[in-house]
Design a protein around this nucleic acid. Sequence first.
DNA 1: ATAACAATTGACAGCGCTGTCATTTTTTTA
DNA 2: TAAAAAAATGACAGCGCTGTCAATTGTTAT
Lengths: 343, 343
Amino acid sequence: MKATINDVAKQAGVSIKTVSRVINNEVSVRQLTREKVQKAVEELNYQPNLAARNLAGAKSFSVAYIYDNPNAYYIIDMQEGILSACKQQGFELLIHPCDAKNKNITEEVVNMVKHARIAGLILTPPLSEMPEFVKSLVALDVKVVRIMSGDVAPDDLSPCVMVNDRDAAQTITQHLIDLGHKDIGFIAGDAKHMSTVERYKGYRRALKESNIDFNKELVIEGEYSFDSGVSGAKQLMSAENNKHRPTAIFSCNDEIAAGALFAARLMNISIPEQLSIVGFENSPFSRQTWPKLTTADQPNNQIAEDAANLLISQVRKQKNQTTISQYVPKLIIRDSTAIVSNR
Amino acid sequence: MKATINDVAKQAGVSIKTVSRVINNEVSVRQLTREKVQKAVEELNYQPNLAARNLAGAKSFSVAYIYDNPNAYYIIDMQEGILSACKQQGFELLIHPCDAKNKNITEEVVNMVKHARIAGLILTPPLSEMPEFVKSLVALDVKVVRIMSGDVAPDDLSPCVMVNDRDAAQTITQHLIDLGHKDIGFIAGDAKHMSTVERYKGYRRALKESNIDFNKELVIEGEYSFDSGVSGAKQLMSAENNKHRPTAIFSCNDEIAAGALFAARLMNISIPEQLSIVGFENSPFSRQTWPKLTTADQPNNQIAEDAANLLISQVRKQKNQTTISQYVPKLIIRDSTAIVSNR
DNA sequence: ATAACAATTGACAGCGCTGTCATTTTTTTA
DNA sequence: TAAAAAAATGACAGCGCTGTCAATTGTTAT
């Protein structure tokens, strides 16, 4: 029923080793031989047995996606992106949710890598942004690719796929400025996430370039959650804070923005007439709020696929891929932003 | 570095075959021997190599989760539930998103099962509710566990974990009735999903038991999407439809409910004062709408874990698990429902 | 044309485990 | 107590592939 390498070898009239060479894309195979083998492979619909390859070879054909992130949309996007790269390259994907706060996380992950003979890992924030964790992994010779926030990699521990949140945040803030807003609140995500820091920098830069005075009181520390958006917006829009009441709020992600929307509703502030709100991420529910959120779109699927390909080619040692891809999320204007109202 | 079965055998002073017996929980091993081996296993922190087990044995130690479902929250919940069962039982999990509309889906899945030597599959709606698909898989001797909507399994093709949407829908409708609602709209999800059918049945049953006349015009066919909620609610609440304007809407899931909320907002209908809306699923964003949704909670994580355990014990042939678990989602009252207003 | 080299191919062991079946030990029965 | 039956254990092959290294073939330089 299922063809083995032996069947292919017989069909092609070569040794199994030669077949092995062809399917592994090794160099020293004559063109003619290679074609014969490829023909046999197709005729028999042969697919190499991953377990056997993993067992026999020094290499492995599985990668793992390690995450600690409550955002289901993000994870699914990542996962499916990685999966599609894996499928193309004949790799398996293991999924491993874990807890960044766990002290033994390095041990846990290393254990898993050794146990399951994993070729490499894909890390997303916040795990990708824990230098000690990454360092330990790299020191133990675990191949890693990180997806991180920033324009350039912070170190050369591993190849990185960078998401330029700073430029995107600048663009989105500029959008608010273009609408006439000068008092723009900022509700931060988790301070430990680079994305928060980067988005903050972009926000500051936009203000600066438009010569708008930065007002510290308009910045609220928060975390990436709906509740944080609720309390942040309340704080920004509260009566005591009246003199500094912003006309727009930059929320570090869509969830925070949804929370801000909720708070505005509680306080009878109409959006976008009295207050403009922007989110970040373009997660599906940014289209399901009232009003729909202006936000920045991250091509997570593609980012993930890119990262997976980077990892796989690194594992294959095809080239010493120090290449770094960079993505800049782009502005999506919907209904939560409008021209500033007269006051 | 990594202990093999050989190391354990030496350490315990037995043959590798005996170690194999112990780790596979086979019967004919003397208690004393078993303990010796277990001690060695612990001392060496031995973990069997999955690739080798898969390769050598007739059995396999991987299961796959096949899905076609746009709902990220649902998938993540399922996945993590399955994963935790797998971890406990020493199984690997492969994830395989696919397209239910694809004609070749059976072939695709069978191919994958054979290729990756998968012990069994976990299927969720809509895949679990495609009889031909399931039948083909079972005919090809692929072990399957289905998660489905209903109170009893529709056939005995495979073990099932049933989610009793009907009872839950009845409860949630009853909640509306208890609040004094008599004109209760129903926005259906995809007609092909059993969950839609079951929820509809529960809705009808609740009406009947309270002697409320069923009004066909209050039922809107839809699909599981935000947009469907928007258009459904618009239709129900439109002026032409005035005489039948419902005072409450049963939405087949939270996304539809969010859409209905959106439509209400568009039409200047205040929730819950003028209109009560309920959702279904208790997905995270049912807490992030304004107002927060009254809904029915499904313990997806646990359902998934259950299904995975069922599959694994079936694969192990430990017992002929025809057992069927049943879960009934339970009512969660939040802010989108209120006592019916006078008209 | 022939030696010297390089490119190509194949034989074979073995990755870590399980299945089969033979062997040894223990228990039961006569 | 010995023979028969049952239980426990082990020896060994082999799952499907890759790594190593030797053998073969082709190519270039003399």
